[in-house]
Amino acid sequence: MLRICNIGKSFNNIAVLNDVSVHVEESSILGLAGPSGSGKSTLLRCIQGLEKPDAGSIKYDGKIGFMFQDFQLFPHMTVLQNLVYTPTRKAASEKKQQYIAKANTLLKELGIGAKAGNYPSTLSGGQKQRVALARSLMIDPDLLLCDEPTSGLDVATISDVVALLRKVHKRNVTIIIASHDLDFLVEICDRIMLLKSGQIIADVRPSQHTNTALHLKSFYDFSCDDAREQA
């Protein structure tokens, strides 16, 4: 279980996260929704340790995988090297073969088995997404953090991402997804939190609403009006 207690984070005196507390159950899929700048990426980055919160605590024992919005594959390595670099760095030679086999199986499962020898520059956005996912799965994470996994992808590829994440979820991996794509989040998540100005303003379970996206959008409208009034 991931416990986030009262964390706060500010950049240049602007609060990006303000007293956020979340408990995430094992093997659940949590969505973080909210407009740009609402703090959802910062929350993910704090969980991974890429940012240090100014206040509060984050408790989690387990391996964490992180999928970056722009993938951040290593461009000078082939797809296979991207996958096996971390696990094989200090492995013995027979173990290395196992990791290579594992990587090839993963790539096949994700439908990009033929691309193992390619460099990332030769792949499409959807293929890079799959490689990024495969790379984060190589370390057998217990928790997978996905930052905007659907940004820049077409509708067909987005439904592929849903299918892929469901596959990952079947391995008992807890997943947290930050995205502004409400329909996507509703389709895949057990629970969705809406962030605004660094605070959680809604916490819903799609199973309990007939139209979660619409319900959440009402918060968006509210927040838009709010913003207009403030302006």
Partner: peptide, 21 residues
């Protein structure tokens, strides 16, 4: 891109190997 350093960190690659590889 700063993300290359972050990706290395997220994958648990120690600094020496991050720089070298």
């Amino acid at each position: 891109p700063k993300g290359q350093f972050e990706a290395a960190y997220a994958l648990g690659i120690p600094p020496f190997y991050m720089w070298r590889d």
